[in-house]
Design a protein around this nucleic acid. Sequence first.
DNA 1: GCTCTGACGATTT
DNA 2: GAAATCGCCAGAG
Length: 98
Amino acid sequence: MPTSFERLVYEKTREIPRGRVATYGEIARVIGRPGAARAVGNALNRNPHPITVPCHRVIRSDMHIGGYAKGADAKKELLIAEGLEIRGDLVIGVPWKF
DNA sequence: GCTCTGACGATTT
DNA sequence: GAAATCGCCAGAG
């Protein structure tokens, strides 16, 4: 069951519009836990709402693809399908500002 | 480019 | 319940 911390993570992640991306650090910051980027990744890793939470739009602060529960490759495809460009492990996109 | 260390919350032991 | 371990990380060296 989701904790309050996880709920906040999912809530913010859901606000990311199609074609935009956000970083783990950004999310950690807006939910009031700056520096807890790892905890955010942990929450998304056990994403209990794969349908409503587009966790594939969350990438690393250096614009790298990072990881993905279903495989980084699938994450790339999803981002490409939303109109983003991926070069190697780099995501060429506009970071979403909460 | 890589490796090491730090920081945070969840899970496991 | 406390300590150890893990994770889709971040920043410095």
